[in-house]
């Protein structure tokens, strides 16, 4: 029971908290105020309970594949939001202006969606098993250990990201967000395959090298959506995610670089 609780809580917490720590450190470095954070967390808690308590209904949608469709939809939505956030962060780096309400709202929505998705499973698990008389001690200590490990990892990760210079944090942050966002697409792919909306298959099996159950496997899963036995459709989605996001981010970056150079040239000509 203890180990089960640890694994369930840790898996879900790691994913959402990693995303939060990347976003928080970028906002800190870019001087974007972080009051959005508490609203996102609050919404995430409410969303978790809402999604968890409505899961029975959601599952029955679309002829029994509602859970997969909603999950995949949320993941794809988060991917798009992260794409927007990355672009905004780069804009903000080159041109410090007041943070728009849209950016703040999108940040809140990302946290809300990511937390609801992960938190609903914890909610279902805890609410179902906390009533068992012999289980509560191991259930709660397991949950605290899982929560503790997840949050510690992310706090240390957050301070680690803060220790770099602004430009490095931005580059690293955008790269991490690209990987995380593409991992979300990969998982969305998994859900769509499970719902039979995409073809299944197996490209390779790397579970002997790094199993998904191990702690490092869980970490890599949370960070980059690691799968030991991915389907071709998942890989295609993942690569699409990486290429698309990298292309948008780099285009934005080059756009600002060019403007900077031309501004300099104009400065010399004067």
């Amino acid at each position: 029971m203890l180990l089960t609780s640890v694994i369930i809580v840790l898996r879900e917490v790691l994913e959402a908290a990693l995303l939060v720590s990347i976003l928080m450190s970028l906002c800190f470095k870019l001087g974007i105020e972080r009051s959005w954070f508490k609203w996102g967390v609050l919404g995430g808690v409410v969303g978790s309970i809402g999604l968890g308590s409505q899961l029975g209904f959601i599952s029955s949608l679309f002829g029994g594949i509602g859970q997969e469709v909603v999950d995949a939809g949320l993941q794809i939505f988060i991917y798009i939001c992260l794409l927007y956030i990355c672009v905004e962060f780069i804009n903000h780096y080159y041109q410090r202006h007041a943070v728009s309400g849209t950016l703040r709202a999108v940040l809140v929505i990302i946290i809300l969606c990511a937390m609801s998705r992960e938190g609903s499973e914890i909610y279902i698990y805890l609410s179902a098993f906390q009533s068992l008389p012999h289980a509560s001690v191991s259930l709660y200590s397991g949950s605290i250990i899982g929560l503790g490990i997840g949050l510690s990892c992310c706090a240390l990760f957050y301070y680690c990201l803060l220790s770099f210079s602004l430009l490095r944090t931005l580059i690293l942050g955008c790269m991490l967000l690209t990987v995380v966002a593409s991992g979300m697409l990969l998982q969305a792919g998994k859900m769509l395959i499970q719902a039979d909306l995409l073809p299944d298959g197996q490209l390779w099996d790397s579970s002997a090298v790094l199993s998904e159950e191990s702690l490092s496997g869980q970490l890599l899963y949370a960070l980059a959506g690691y799968e030991a036995t991915p389907a071709p459709a998942q890989l295609v989605l993942y690569l699409f995610g990486v290429v698309c996001m990298a292309a948008v981010v780099l285009t934005r970056y080059w756009h600002w670089q060019r403007r900077k150079v031309s501004a300099k040239v104009a400065g010399y000509e004067e």
Binding site: S59, E121, A128, K190, Q194, E213
Partner: peptide, 26 residues
């Protein structure tokens, strides 16, 4: 109580609530 059907080999995970019947494609 709910249960989550999970398989690393099959790449499947799905929460099945208590008393519910769920569909998984394999």
């Amino acid at each position: 109580t709910p249960e989550e059907f999970e398989s690393y080999e099959l790449n499947r995970e799905k929460v099945v609530l208590g008393g519910q019947r769920s569909l998984i494609f394999i």
